[in-house]
Design a protein around this nucleic acid. Structure first.
Length: 423
RNA sequence: GGAGAGAUGGCCGAGUGGUCGAAGGCGCACGCCUGGAAAGUGUGUAUACCUCACAAGGGUAUCGAGGGUUCGAAUCCCUCUCUCUCCGCCA
């Protein structure tokens, strides 16, 4: 959520910058400015009324003490008038506050200056590409056939017991999952992240805190009986650790990592893009989250990018890095790098990680701040990235490493799997 | 799930209708003291919004959350949430 103070001070600039996201903010900003002005004047009126009422109450108290009952009773009448006025103003004020909030949550984050203009993923800027793209023989199989051939993932069984998008991992397939999770976590810990195991269900406040609500209502699984949401990413619980928290500057940067199962309804997606492991309702992911000072957050973003690149190199997967254009940026992000691995049999780039700087967009909503050395309280910047999401990594590993003998496991993973071939 | 107790500032803890944003202690920050440190000592130490120059000063709100009684509530009443203890159930 953007800060009202920023909009108030730089309305035109905000509108202009949001155009990079192809978002026309004019109307909302105009309405916000009106709401903000009347909110403030109402606040002033209310405060003045309450101040008067407070001082009268004190006076009445004194009068009673000194036995001047009649005079006190006269003042009481005046107070009850003020009370009615205050009540009305209070109501107006909370209406205006609600209106302001409703408008504010509709505005996406402002893209960082260097974010390229553009409408779709076609216009993302490919920043780098690494690793060899190998030509597979013509009889190479897509992963959804390899999983059957080697009996490591059973999609039909998952469909039977739950539904589409809930695969069952089996044998070496299950072990591979476990190996990847451990590998990713160990890498993160070595890079200085603290490991957490968060709850997989969160309450409404948390879903609101990281912006899943109200923007993405309907994308999460919801349990109405307890009013809890299944997390779509560990980002939600982990970032919410810091909701309503004021850190001290020397605690920064906060670096957290968590493995979690992620649940996504993915309403409306279908077709061949969702085949096999490409898009699931339930999947495993290791997430990294950082909280930093504003002046350091872009340096941090690059660090996180380098970190994820390192893991992909260890997995020997060809990948490229895309800097998202304005139109492809998520609602909350100021700048995002997508990491895509090449899936040789599908001949496609698959997104396996998305690393974003949210600047103060999340922290403003979360009320995540820190006190700097001179004692000033400042909104922190939050960043997160996948490191990494499993299914597409598995898809790429299976496809790229298929050989006549079986599927080769990259060296870095062998200590975790305990085998170097799936056959 | 049943019965009972409780929720106060970074922490501990006082406060049962007015002078309480809240005693006292701890912690923390800065100063004094010291060759240096400890001890001692002095001062300061919540958040949001409004006013305003994002200064100083001032105003308002906040003692788990929401509502109510009252001229006036941390203090009384109602609802909810959470925590603890005992019992039950259970991985």
């Amino acid at each position: 959520m953007l800060q009202i103070q920023v909009i108030r001070a730089q309305a035109e600039e905000v509108i202009k910058k949001l155009q990079v996201k192809n978002f026309n903010a004019k109307e909302i900003v105009d309405r916000l400015l009106v709401a903000d002005t009347s909110r403030r004047s109402t606040q002033k009126k209310l405060d003045d009324t309450l101040a008067e009422s407070n001082s009268l109450a004190k006076e009445i108290g004194n009068l009673f003490k000194s036995g001047k009952k009649e005079e006190a009773n006269r003042l009481k009448e005046k107070t009850s008038e003020l009370k009615n006025v205050a009540k009305e103003l209070q109501e107006q004020l909370s209406n205006l506050e609600n209106e302001q909030d409703e408008l504010l949550v509709q505005l996406p984050n402002i893209p960082q200056e260097s974010v390229p203009a553009g409408k779709t993923s076609e216009e993302n800027e490919i920043v780098s590409q690494q690793g060899n793209i190998e030509e597979l023989s013509t009889d190479a199989l897509p992963h959804w056939e390899l999983t059957g051939k080697y009996d490591i993932i059973d999609f039909e069984l998952g469909t039977k017991i739950t539904g589409a998008g809930f695969p069952v991992y089996k044998g070496k397939g299950a072990k591979l999952q476990r190996a990847l999770i451990s590998f990713f976590l160990d890498e993160a810990i070595n890079a200085g992240y603290t490991e957490y195991q968060p709850p997989l269900l969160v309450n409404e406040d948390s879903a609101y805190g990281t912006g899943q609500l109200p923007d993405k209502d309907g994308q999460m699984y919801h349990i109405p009986l307890d009013n809890l949401y299944l997390i779509p990413t560990a980002e939600v619980p982990v970032t919410n650790f810091y909701r309503d928290v004021i850190l001290h500057e020397d605690q920064l940067p906060v670096k957290s990592t968590a493995y979690s199962v992620c649940f996504r309804r993915e309403a409306g997606s279908y077709g061949k893009d969702v085949r096999g492991l490409n898009r699931l309702h339930q999947f495993d992911k290791v997430e990294i989250v950082q909280v930093t000072q504003p002046e350091k957050s872009y340096e941090t973003l690059e660090q996180m990018l380098n970190y994820v690149s390192g893991i992909l190199r260890k997995l020997e997967l060809p990948f490229r890095v895309a800097k998202l254009c304005g139109g492809d940026l998520s609602f909350a992000s100021a700048m995002t790098y997508d990491m895509e691995v090449y899936s040789a049999a599908q001949k496609r780039w698959l997104e396996v990680s998305s690393i974003s700087n949210f600047e103060t967009f999340q922290s403003n909503r979360l009320k995540l701040r820190y006190k700097n050395k001179s004692g000033k309280t400042i909104l922190a910047h939050t960043l997160n990235g996948s490191a990494l999401a499993l299914p597409r990594i598995v898809a790429a590993l299976l496809e790229n490493n298929q050989t006549p003998e079986g599927i080769r496991i990259p060296e870095a993973l062998v200590p975790y799997t305990g085998f170097d071939l799936i056959n």
